[in-house]
Amino acid sequence: MRNLTNKGTRTEASGATEAEISSSTPEDTPNSNERDARDAPDGASIALPSHVAGSGTLDRLVDTARDYAKASTAENTNKAYAADWKHFARWCRLKGTDPLPTSPEMIGLYLTDLAAPTNGSLALSVSTIERRLSGLAWNYAQRGVSLDRKNRHIATVLAGIKRKHARPPVQKEAILPQDILAMVATLSHDLRGLRDRAILLIGYAGGLRRSEIVSIDVHKDDTTDSGGWVEILEDGAVLTLNAKTGWREVEIGRGSTERTCPVHALEQWLHFARIDSGPVFVRTSRDGNRALDTRLSDKHVARLIKATVLKSGIRSDLPEKDRVALFSGHSLRAGLASSAEVDERYVQKQLAHASAEMTRRYQRRRDRFRVNLTKAAGL
């Protein structure tokens, strides 16, 4: 049972949704939905050999194997890859061809149209085009077809797109200590405010991805869609996460004061929401006074960050639109990497980065000239 002893009202944090602008996107055509459904793999490539007769046991095993195949990639990745295939399939039909069998020549033209669209649409970034190509390769593999990305019709076109259009990556702004304190100060003290305060502080101190924040349960195996669980100890909290890089533990120590302590914020949320099992972060009722059973979406974290950035006045020197665009879920991870005054290897471990170089990409204000090779070389 989940209810509240504290009273108060507050509306859910709102913010602009972020939609990727796709080039060369045709309008829906008759029967396009049926054809898209036909093209989607949905684990259909997992099946019994043609020479084996089906049975109840084997059919159940096929269904389970399809579930495992679907779980081989993250849910958000599956959605992105499905959207990539749908876009490519419709583009092919608009050009009078079909996505199957694979055609390196047509894929090369498709990449060209993404980089330099002929219909007035905005061009996609190089990183997005590369992601689209990865999505196509994955989709072809699910259909038992190999896509040779080294084929000259693909590789040379992509190399030319990179050479002509590549730009330095646009990094999201890091949320610094004074920023996160200002952000949580904008939250009310009703149930919804307690929840959002815990989300921001846990996400910041843990250097967590937004999907990791909302995926945790109170205990191991509480739910089938769990991404991990939390154990609260005297000195802090230990999160066991099944995340992008596999299983890992994230240790979050207690803060110097209750006002800034992420573990205390988490304890307050769990106590007043009366959550003793299942998802840690769930939706609340419209009045913000009662916890529901539904797990929050990771999109809530992004909206929460943007909304509290605006309310707290961070980067008030910029127009509101630019301020919203500067911050995202990754701003929490970048904030920890930029602000933690500890040996770099500890930050690397917390963020689960495979290399120190990746960690440095998250450090927005590190001492770049701590090692001065110019002076070391005698100049």
Score class of each variant (00 low, 15 high):
Gly193Asp: 05
Leu48Ala: 10
Pro168Leu: 02
Arg93Glu: 14
Ala65Cys: 05
Gly193Tyr: 00
Ser188His: 08
Ser23Asn: 07
Thr17Phe: 07
Gly206Cys: 09
His189Thr: 13
Gly120Asn: 07
Tyr204Glu: 06
Ala334Phe: 14
Asp196Ile: 05
Pro41Asp: 15
Asp59His: 07
Leu296Thr: 08
Ile232Glu: 12
Cys261Met: 12
Ile252Asn: 07
Leu100His: 14
Leu147Asn: 08
Asp179Pro: 01
Ser127Gln: 02
Arg315Thr: 07
Ala82Glu: 11
Leu158Asp: 09
Ala16Gly: 07
Arg286Leu: 13
Ser355Asp: 04
Ser316Pro: 02
Lys172Val: 06
Glu234Ile: 00
Val301Lys: 01
Ala83Trp: 02
Leu292Gly: 12
Gly378Trp: 03
Ala47Val: 11
Glu344His: 02
Arg2Asp: 10
Ala74Leu: 04
Leu100Gly: 03
Asp98Ser: 14
Arg66Glu: 04
Ser22Thr: 07
Leu326Gln: 15
Gln142His: 04
Leu304Cys: 04
Gly135Ser: 12
Ala352Glu: 00
Gly15His: 03
Thr97Arg: 12
Leu310Pro: 02
Asp98Val: 05
Pro49Val: 04
Leu176Trp: 03
Arg10Val: 03
Thr102Glu: 03
Asp39Ala: 12
Pro262Gly: 09
Ser285Gln: 10
Leu48His: 12
Val170Thr: 15
Leu194Cys: 06
Arg192Cys: 03
Gly96Lys: 08
Ser134Arg: 14
Ser256Gln: 08
Leu326Ala: 15
